[in-house]
Design a protein around this nucleic acid. Structure first.
Length: 427
RNA sequence: GGAGAGAUGGCUGAGUGGCCGAAAGCGAUCGCCUGCUAAGCGAUUGUACGCCCCAAAAGGUGUACCGCGGGUUCAAAUCCCGCUCUCUCCGCCA
């Protein structure tokens, strides 16, 4: 959510900055409603003040045993009037909040303008594409041949875009989760949490999934609970409605969760393999910072995500999203794209964003400045560290050998606990 | 799933219709005092929104908030209704 006072005073500027996202937004209705709200508010507050003054007098008169019935009839009318105006304010505020909750975040000043993915900027490459002396195969072929990815049974059990992981793939997935969590908690200083995988409407609204993107979510029938599309939601909501101590910032959390996405509107895209599933695992990094820390912490957080790829020796690039490709809540985003030789393409494996105070304002997450004692909204950040399913895909495709077996990366050896770090077809 | 009890400020906890944004204690901050420490004394100590002032901050002023939402009343932390959450007991269960 944007700062309503900033918005009020910078209508043209905000329209201009939101336009860089590629959508024209007319703030005229906002200006009108906002003006109405203040007018009615002033009127109702004046009346309430009048009521309070008279009621105090009535209290005095009653104590003295004086007759105050002449005042009650008049005050009854005032109260009716107040009630009517309160109803009006509620209507105005409901309309206003719909607008406020559906306005996207302002892009960070460092974000380059652009219309879509084609305008994103590649900031760096790390490593090299593996040199294979055979034609690399896509992970779905490798996985089926090795009998570790069972797409047919996944869709039998549930439906399209669900996959059964077996044997080496199940172990690899579990090893990756542990590896990522161990790295972030032991070396990068994150505090591990394991949150609920279902959240309520308030939590979804706080991080920005609701009210606008309900069709992307799975909602549990007969409840107001939703399956989380990312750990960002429950973890950011840990501190919803709280005032944090400045000395505690930045707060850094790492969480493993499954993620559930309806993938509405993606029919026909990435239908083969593990790339776009309704359920996938992710290790997420979340930070709460003071405003002046958030730019630096985004760099750190992205470095931490990159460290996972580097230890796994996976070639990747860092991309800075242009204004037109930014997500709804994000002020600034870096994507990490890993090389997939089986498909001959770079594929997003992490998305690291600074949300500024956008989520913090929706969620009411603030901190108290030590020097002044004043409260301010924190900045929130999060990033995948990493998407586990896609990391598994990258390992299968990058570590495949001519005979179709998979050599497990050195960094994961401890998680194989003495077994030969190789995935091959059981004999 | 059934029965009961509860939800008040950073914390503990009083408050059953008006003098209550809320006693008292603890904690915290600032000051005083004591050679240090401890103790003691005094002051301050919620948030949001509107208006005034203002470059801004500070300040002034009004309104709202005692889990959430509605109702009764001239007036609600207090009475009534609904909901949420917590605790206890029973049932069920990993």
């Amino acid at each position: 959510m944007l700062d309503i006072r900033y918005l009020r005073q910078n209508i043209a500027r905000v329209e201009e900055r939101l336009a860089t996202r590629g959508q024209q937004i007319d703030l005229g209705p906002f200006v009108k409603l906002e003006g109405q709200r203040r007018n009615v508010l002033q009127e109702v507050e004046t009346l309430r003040n009048q009521r309070n003054v008279v009621n105090r007098a009535i209290g005095e008169m009653k104590k003295k045993g004086e007759d105050f019935t002449s005042l009650t009839a008049e005050m009854g009318k005032v109260s009716d009037r107040i009630k009517g105006l309160e109803g009006e304010i509620n209507r105005i505020e409901d309309e206003l909040s719909v607008i406020m909750l559906t306005l996207p975040n302002l892009p960070h000043e460092a974000v380059t303008p652009g219309g879509g993915p084609e305008d994103n900027q590649v900031l760096k490459y790390w490593g090299e594409k593996p040199r294979l002396d055979f034609t690399p195969r896509p992970h779905w072929e490798l996985g089926e041949d090795l009998d570790i990815l069972d797409f047919a049974r996944g869709s039998k059990i549930t439906g399209a875009r669900f996959t059964l992981l077996k044997g080496g793939a199940a172990l690899l997935e579990r090893a990756l989760i542990s590896f990522m969590l161990d790295l972030h908690t032991e070396e990068h200083g994150y505090h591990e949490v394991l949150p609920p995988f279902m959240v309520n409407r308030e939590s979804m609204t706080a991080t920005g999934q609701l009210p606008k993107f309900a069709e992307d979510l799975f909602r549990l029938e007969n409840t107001e609970y939703f399956l989380i599309p990312t750990a960002e939601v429950p973890v950011t909501n840990i501190h919803r409605g709280e005032i944090l101590a400045e000395a505690d910032l930045p707060l850094s959390y790492a969480a493993y969760t499954p993620c559930f996405r309806a993938e509405a509107g993606s029919y026909g895209k990435d239908t083969r393999g593990l790339i776009r599933q309704h359920q996938f695992n992710k290790v997420e990094l979340v930070k709460f910072t003071a405003p002046e820390q958030s730019d630096g912490e985004l760099e750190r957080l992205t470095d931490h995500a990159e460290e996972v790829l580097e230890r796994l020796q996976l070639h990747y690039r860092r991309v800075s999203l242009c204004s037109g490709d930014l997500g709804f809540s994000a002020a600034r985003t870096y994507d990490l794209e890993v090389w997939l030789p089986g498909q001959g393409t770079y594929r997003e494996i992490s998305s690291c964003s600074n949300f500024g105070d956008f989520q913090a304002r929706r969620a009411g997450i603030r901190f108290r400045r030590e020097k002044t004692g004043r409260v301010e909204h924190v900045h929130t950040l999060n990033g995948s560290g990493l998407a586990v399913g896609r990391t598994l895909v990258a390992i299968l495709e990058n570590y495949q050998r001519a005979d179709g077996t998979i050599k497990v990366p050195e960094a994961l050896k401890p998680y194989w606990r003495g077994k030969v770090p190789l995935i091959s077809r059981p004999s």
